[in-house]
Design a protein around this nucleic acid. Structure first.
Lengths: 224, 224, 224, 224
DNA sequence: GATGAATGAGTTTTCATTCAT
DNA sequence: GATGAATGAAAACTCATTCAT
């Protein structure tokens, strides 16, 4: 009757509702991580979530929409991690590259569950489309961040064709990191996070010897 | 396993039989490439193969076995391509590395159909196991080939910690090439094969400046 | 049944309550008319009524009761129309018959929505029972009205077996009018209300030439 | 192996297949007759047919298609009956009309099961569309048959506006017969087939007194 | 050996009903 | 009183597998 109690009630309700929605998304991600997309049935998902069958329809209308929501969630996890690292990193291009590499190889994303999910969505043709659509604009932003970090260093260093090299370095770094994830997917036990990091820095150090060594950024940080 | 039955029947019959078997495997791969694993139903596969439903049972007992055979086939395609390239390559370590990179980025494997299949099998948890089991020994062989190509060059160059660097270079190269495939999977239209090659050589050139430039192997081929 | 609660609450409340109840019934009828009974789900009905899901339980306990109420409402519409026409009609048997025919073919009942509803309830076996139960006593009244209008005219006219003919005429007229509805159901666009009327009067005129022509009742109105 | 036995086998198989298909259609009609469309679930239908669940998909892809096939079947029953009667009837217009009336009121179509089915399909908005599409051309043919029977009789009789009257008589007869079915639907026990016939003939006799009495066609058969 | 009709377990989806707020 | 989130039984549909021919 009175507005305050109504709002309180509805707030609690809608909070609970939201929590259920998220529980379904998380259960879906768990399922996809453990069983893959093909075996992630509604029955399997609701069993993990401990919620009712009808809930999926209530929140997502179809299982397909639930999968889409799960893909979106998986994306957020990655880009949130990256955003945090970039915010924490100093303003220099050296530090930016450092942050990108370390966030990509951090335990927050490079873990069994997350990597399984990532590759599951990439692997299944139909989901890949959703995935791509979601990723492309953000990927572009990440490319830009990396490119704009490499360019001034290459120029200062006097590398000829700095623009071309910067683009190659960017594509190479992204590919290298992707390849590390691949390696982790297939051999999570044997994977060595530090070695992966070292390899990445070796690659960059080859192009930017004044700024990086295999151990990471040097201290000759160029003032911006 | 089926050699006996192969020999028993008339040659024509067993040839036809083998052709049917392969048609099913290829149809499965087509299906996986286009629709993904989850949507590759028996009905879809036989429609593409133009064969009868019972045929799958006849040749593979279960659909699962058909999928395994398809995974094996996908593997063969890749390693056959690599073997050819290595055979064609000269005996020097430079040429070996050159062959590995060029085979990995060649149109024979880096094409839409094949990359879709590869990632589909990797993505689906259950198939990944089969995939891994099949790949691991062969992957090890490939690692060894690359490692043993890098090592003498690094030693001759006088790189300190040559063993460690050789391992890093090997893992890095493999990761980089995997990453290129990833890029191709997501952007087959925008992908630039030459640039991918150049990026790979830039990476190696950073570690082996005497042997490689971004354009490939230099001509200072070390006599073996 | 709900008189007590009606009287208890404030007038405004009970008015609102009643309005909601009717909104649900009307929404149900709309739904049945457009989608048929099988597709008239609770969700569909409340969407049309703009009311909450729980409302149905509040007013009708079950969806089935709501359907029954809708059937009753559909009945009322018809018999209300008939009652109005009979009240307006003069007292002579000629005028009674005239009123029956004109009300049956009037736009108030012979319209798309109403005819769809009517046939939907007739068609679905389960609802037909409710329908029949509701109709039978009222139908009997209508039969009686028609029969008692025909009989004196036939007698006065000197028709042999007047009782039998009166019964046949009654059944025939009712059947003819029903058949017209049927025609309207299937071809609402092509339906010609005037022609339908004329056909009905032709039928009656065949049996009662002194009282009717194809244009309706003649003016030789027999004093009652 | 040999062609004869192969064909025999496949014939038997496809005969069996066809029988199953028809069994499903008949079971659907039974279901619709007894329970109505809304309650005719796949489970209910296969229980009646004594066949497996998957069969419906095998033969009809969807339940909706099965319903359509059932509607078509119901149609055939009616028009087959009419065709038989018309073929048996003599060539005169009197006899044609006679055949139409008698076939419409014959036990072959005017029975509980059939009438229930007929009204079920007419009642539900969605089914009605299929129904209408199927019927419209055949209905038109039937109209033409009736119309062309009435017209010469009315002309010979010297009825003014023979064309108009013929059309009215046609529409009236069809409506009347439809109305009889309605009556049967609601009161199958009380329905009197002979009386229905008599009523129909009274209607026609009113317009064509030289050719019909309430008992049917007179013997003044006009030579064709 | 080969076929494809048939099966039924299991999947997604729908929906009337319940009930905490 | 009123709401709409939640439930789960039952609905339609999918599909690997079987097996008579």
């Amino acid at each position: 009757m009175n507005k305050i109690s109504d709002n309180r009630g509805s707030d609690r309700r809608s909070q609970l509702r939201e929590r259920n929605r998220e529980a379904l998304v998380e259960a879906t991600l768990d399922c996809v991580a453990e069983l893959g997309i093909a075996r992630s049935s509604v029955s399997e998902i609701i069993a993990r979530a401990g919620l009712s069958r009808g809930m999926i329809h209530l929140h997502f209308e179809t299982k397909d929409n639930l999968l889409k929501a799960a893909i979106e969630r998986a994306n957020e996890i990655y880009y949130d991690e990256l955003a945090v690292l970039l915010r924490q990193a100093g303003p220099s291009p050296q530090e930016t590259i450092d942050a990108v590499i370390r966030s990509d190889l951090s335990e927050n994303v490079l873990n069994r569950r997350y990597i399984s999910i990532w590759y599951a969505f990439r692997g299944e043709a139909r989901e890949r489309e959703v995935f791509r659509r979601l990723n492309d604009t953000r990927d572009e932003r990440m490319r830009t961040i990396i490119l704009e970090a490499f360019l001034p260093m290459l120029r200062e260093q006097g590398t000829p064709d700095a623009e071309l090299v910067a683009r190659d370095a960017t594509d190479g770094l992204i590919a290298l990191l992707e390849g590390m994830w691949n390696d982790y997917l297939l051999h999570p036990d044997a994977f060595d996070r530090d070695q992966a990091c070292r390899v990445a820095f070796r690659f960059i150090a080859g192009l930017l010897p004044d700024y990086f060594t295999f151990a990471g950024a040097t201290h000759k940080v160029s003032a911006k």
